[in-house]
Design a protein around this nucleic acid. Sequence first.
DNA 1: ATCTCGATAGTCT
DNA 2: GACTATCGAGATC
Length: 232
Amino acid sequence: MEDIDLGLPLEYEFYLKPTVEVAQNLLNCLLISETEEGRVVGRISETEAYTQDDPACHAFRGKTQRNAPMFESAGIAYVYLCYGVHYCFNAVTNHEGIGEAVLIRAVEPLVNWELMAKRRGIDPNTAPWNKRDSGSTTLRTRLGNHLCGGPGKLAQAFGISNKQNRVDLTSTTELWIASVQHTGIPKPQIVSSTRIGISAASERLWRFTLQNECFLSKPIPPTKACELEPIS
DNA sequence: ATCTCGATAGTCT
DNA sequence: GACTATCGAGATC
């Protein structure tokens, strides 16, 4: 169970590409956290891109103490506290001096569900939502989404806090991202939608997921009715 | 399934 | 002083 192939850590150059491209390329890559408590691994299933010319980006109005890591080296972590309670984990992209990053919004738990559940304060055996229902949603999906289906949740499950701000994600010491196949996902499999909780720049469809993905922070909005085939 | 609402604290105007 | 890249509980359909 613990002996899955972790591949190789993504290199500095991976994060230098345009931020929107990096956000798409990060899908299906592995997020790995190693602490004294143990190692946890997840498969990245939802990302969002934030560029400096984007009103929704923390760096839009220039560098401040909080967003400074976004302007630093590509491939480091940018972690910040949101709503006073939750940490959000980003991978910094683009060259130094440009404030851009990719928010990791959801992962599929792969290794050490037990530790993730412990950190999330969940008892997998007695939690009330831990019941098979009559729908298509499986137990595994529901548990996975409770563990890591959202930026705040996955940060907690992976033991990420402001202590991980600026950690080098290309180094396999504490927190890193790895790719099993360096080529990434074929573009047609990628679905883009509006970013969650963002009102500015709503025309930028920079939330990225894969088709048929079930480990998500929120469902993908239904396709517009006019784009659907009529039902005969 | 979809909604509303409150908690909470750091950041920026 | 007014936000906020969220979460979970509780209400309602």
